[in-house]
Design a protein around this nucleic acid. Structure first.
Lengths: 111, 111
DNA sequence: CAAATACTTAAGTAATTACTTTACTATTGG
DNA sequence: CCAATAGTAAAGTAATTACTTAAGTATTTG
């Protein structure tokens, strides 16, 4: 594990924390300001800001400041990374399991 | 964040560590013993065993011991949990973005 | 302009997590 | 049987991470 932190690393690390997933759940319903995001989460506003930082760096969330209020919204593209990683693994093991199934189904090949 | 650790929590926490993802990547190619899993990973065997414990508790991996060798394999069903969580969020925000699209496409409704 | 609002930043603390070392328990092969 | 192999378990350490407090900066609002 060298110092290289890839995007996959950042995304899965971001998704690994329950508070951050709670933030993503709330943001799924639509854009929300930082303080409204913090209200139901039993942590301080400062903690939420820190979580938002890692969510934004991972590409799962985009935020924009207008006046004194920062609006946060889901960045759908960010989730592709996670889905793609899982999908890649799946395609590998499914291909393997298919071959195994063939072997079990037709134990002889030329009769 | 009460003491309740759900399955979603366990799965995303398990996926959050790069070493554990490396283990899953290797296991995608087929079942492997613990020591062969540890070989390329620059951590000790003991560390790998610990990672396998969290992977197994999360349902992403299943292991079975025969004689003195424990064989580890991917548990495809475990990944559903992660994909489903992401999928649920996606369905929520996509529905929302669709409604937004409709509003922008047809700004008037009766005329 | 003064007070309230909405964050922001920095610094430190507490908790969790990953990892190591060491010693130990089967199992297998010569 | 003995030595090597394969993994296990416990205990401690080091690193990371989440979180708090406290002080500060813009931006409204009355």
């Amino acid at each position: 594990m060298p110092g290289q932190t890839s995007n996959v690393d950042r995304v899965f690390h971001a998704l690994g924390d329950p508070t951050r997933r709670a933030i993503l759940e709330k943001l799924s319903a639509g854009p929300v300001s930082v303080s409204r995001l913090a209200e139901p989460l039993d942590v301080t506003l400062a903690a939420v800001v820190q979580h938002l930082q890692v969510l934004e760096e991972s590409g799962l969330v985009h935020t924009e400041k207008l006046g004194r209020v920062r609006t946060c919204r889901i960045e759908p593209a960010g989730f592709w990374v996670a889905e793609q990683w899982i999908g890649e693994r799946r395609s590998i093991w499914e291909r393997r399991l298919d071959r195994l199934g063939e072997l079990l189904a037709e134990p002889e090949e030329g009769a």
